[in-house]
């Protein structure tokens, strides 16, 4: 017997993500889902961003990793609340895992929550966690062919940070090609060229992020 079904495989996650989203909105919290391949510089960017913003923005961090809590320890050193999620093998975070961390935070005292997703350029793009928007990092050492190889992530992200530009003199990687190809996939993409090592380009990112925090939706 054939039975017609027509159901989105991700429906359950989408539902939970939406519940998370509603809760974040209630607290006027801006939430960013930060994605990249392993080692592109997510934790480094968070460390820099916390240093730059923490005097006027109350930040919390969720660290997603398959194993280990090293990243949460790095963030905790910066004096902001950080919760580690170990996915136990899963290559992405989902709405449920994020919800399970809620009791560790005091959302009333926070303006900005950044979720560092598991290092992976594929699956995290499919799973909403309740974010306002997705941001992704591509480091120049990964090569300039990545936008066309992983179009979904570039399409779904609102922000692209091209990191490790301090290494450009040593490698063959065209920033123009990254920019052109990713803008074809996502003409609205906001691109920053940065180095978390030298700090180059980060000022512009901080300013942009400050504006987003200021203009976040607040429902009273």
């Amino acid at each position: 017997m054939k039975v017609s079904v027509v159901r989105n495989i991700l429906e359950a996650n989408d539902r939970i993500a939406q519940q998370n989203r509603d809760l974040f909105t209630e607290h006027g919290l801006l939430v960013i889902n930060l994605m990249s391949s392993p080692g592109a510089g997510k934790t480094s960017l968070l460390e820099k961003t916390i240093d730059a913003l923490k005097d006027d923005v109350d930040i919390g961090i969720i660290e997603g990793d398959i194993q280990s809590s090293q990243d949460a320890e790095r963030i905790a050193k910066k004096g902001v609340p950080a919760v580690q999620i170990n996915t136990g093998g899963a290559c992405h975070l989902d709405g449920n895992m994020i919800r399970d961390t809620f009791e560790e935070f005091d959302f009333e005292k926070m303006d900005l929550l950044i979720v560092e997703n598991v290092g992976n350029l594929v699956c995290p793009a499919e799973f909403k966690v309740g974010e306002d928007f997705k941001a992704m990092i591509l480091s120049v050492t990964e090569g300039d062919d990545k936008p066309s190889k992983y179009p979904l992530m570039f399409r779904e992200s609102k922000v692209l940070l091209i990191n490790k530009i301090d290494l450009l003199p040593y490698i063959d990687c065209s920033l123009d090609r990254i920019r052109e190809d990713s803008l074809k996939i996502n003409p609205e993409l906001r691109i920053f060229q940065v180095s978390c090592k030298t700090g180059e380009g980060l000022e512009e990112w901080y300013e942009w992020l400050r504006e987003r925090v200021k203009n976040r939706e607040v429902i009273l």
Partner: peptide
């Protein structure tokens, strides 16, 4: 083109 859906199952 971004679909991820179950369309039909065949069962006994």
């Amino acid at each position: 083109g971004q679909d991820l859906a179950i369309v039909e199952i065949e069962v006994d």
